[in-house]
Amino acid sequence: MSFNKAKEYIEEGDTVILYLGPNNMHSIDVVHKIMNKKGELTDNVFQTIYGALKVPSLVGEKYGAKVQLSRGWAYVLQPTSELWTVTLPHRTQIIYTPDISLITYLLELVPGSIVVETGTGSGSLSHSLIRIIQPLGHLYTFDFHEQRASLACAEFEKHGLSDFVTVQHRDVCADGFGEKLNNKADAIFLDLPHPWLTIDHAVKTLKNSGGKLCSFSPCIEQVQRTCEKLTATGFVDLKTYECLEKELSVQYKSLPVLDLECLKHKRISEEAIDKVEKNEEDRRKYEKILTVTHSSSLPGHTGFITIATLPPVFARIIKTS
């Protein structure tokens, strides 16, 4: 229940983020008993590289507090959509924060927006969508995979978000978004293998006053077919972007400085040379600089983000060729 509002203290039933390091974060449920592999209820103890954590002991702790592990310590944080994205259980490939940010920005979502998302996948984007549109808006999310849909549904319930989201198991390419959503949506997001098959349904689902459609596809061929279909159905202002986030690691570096000036002058005696060389050794200059290093391996491609606007009915122009 820790997703819908900022909280000060951890309560039973919350999902919390256990932070051990930038690349070592876990989301854990603060409950007394959990199911083990044999299907028996056991005490909820979480094992980390710094030892075990008795999870129920977190109840009453302040979010942001340092907690003791048997061989070290960790921080407990309240999950934000960003922290959830990096700790959630993967059921599919997921969309990460840089793309999520751009998608939600381009869809122009505000509290109160009605959004349609397909497919739900692991719910990474869904959590961000809900964060923006609550408390007055609603997310309708679809997945053609039955188990994924029901797992996502349970997850939203656990996170206290079920008032703002409706999960449906449905193949939208074949069956559309349903009569009930006709002329209801402000924005539609597509993350599908064949997004162009849903565009006709999308036109029906977007409000008569118009709306936004965003499609996320890893392959350019998908983008091309989708854009062709979007243009043919009256969408305007089509734009396709690719956004990659680079993390820079801040470091001090010491750079030796060579003194070449002294070589220009003739030395007086051997003795002096010895002296100079000795001094040079002592004075071997280093310059300390603060800089960054770039990563040798980073995401080079995630997906193409295509955004399109559907004008209100009176201003729609369908070009016939």
Binding site: Q224, C227, L238, T240, Y241, E242, C243, L244, E245, K246
Partner: peptide, 20 residues
């Protein structure tokens, strides 16, 4: 904690049939 310094690469595309 979890301090990160980030910078983005953003590129836009021309999408037209056979000219993307």
């Amino acid at each position: 904690m979890n301090i990160r310094l980030l910078s983005n690469f953003l590129r836009s595309y021309q999408v037209l049939d056979d000219r993307t």
